[in-house]
Amino acid sequence: MTASGTFGYGIEFADLVNLSDIGGIIVKGTTLHPREGNDYPRMAETASGMLNCVGLQNKGVDYFCKNIYPKIKDIDTNMIVNVSGSSIEDYALCAARINELERIPAIELNISCPNVKQGGMAFGVTSKGARAVVEAVRKAYDKTLIVKLSPNVTDIAEIALAVEDAGADAVSLINTLMGMAIDINRRCPKLSINTGGLSGPAVKPVALRMVWQVAKAVKIPVVGLGGISTTEDAIEFLMAGASAVQIGTANFIDPAVSVKIAQGISRWLDQHKYKSVQEIIGAV
């Protein structure tokens, strides 16, 4: 699958990759009301990764349903909407709107965006907050509910257990790690809101460790992401216990990387005489 915020609505990449070859496309974070996002500059390149502080720029769920959904509903893959909000009511109302869309089989609940002052990550860093959002959304949404977890916590497994107990069908992790970069000549942060979320290969070992911890703790499926850019990276996540993986920042460097990795996993399984990917999930 492609990770939210790294693959637009899929259509931006239609010239470059056969979208139906991707297992799922998780579209950009959608909120109840339109959001302008944060000021420029919103990104900084770092060693083997990047920081971003986009701040959930999107035109709101009404615009999505009216103008974007008709354009993406016939893409032959799982089109999943990432839902974010700044209050429990907003999350539930937004999820309820997406629930009406026939061709959207699942949502990914973003309780882990580090770049929005109110809400977002605030819900995802305590078990109580995470549980409250998921319980409210569960009542408003009856299809597959994936909850995206924040790595900016002391014990991610504890949050995952709370989310599972509140009715999540799956968890995905990790969202970006909060970080910072400074322009030493100007003596100021490189990002407009000072801090941002780190992604890319730099975060992969952290993400892998967290996927391993969460997969041991919960019974629901775990979707692994964080710095995956090669077939071998993806297989590591599967062996750590992920049932599926998302490709994020790597899409910026190779727009077709997700398909290459999906094909690479199949090839690797054949070469190593595995009959099914199930045989390697959680194999460590």
């Binding site: 919103r42 990104m43 910026f252």
Partner: peptide, 20 residues
Amino acid sequence: LMACGLGACLCCVEKTVRGN
């Protein structure tokens, strides 16, 4: 400054009369 070049990452925004 931009990352993807395809309109996906929303990093390179400029403020315009139509918003970012």
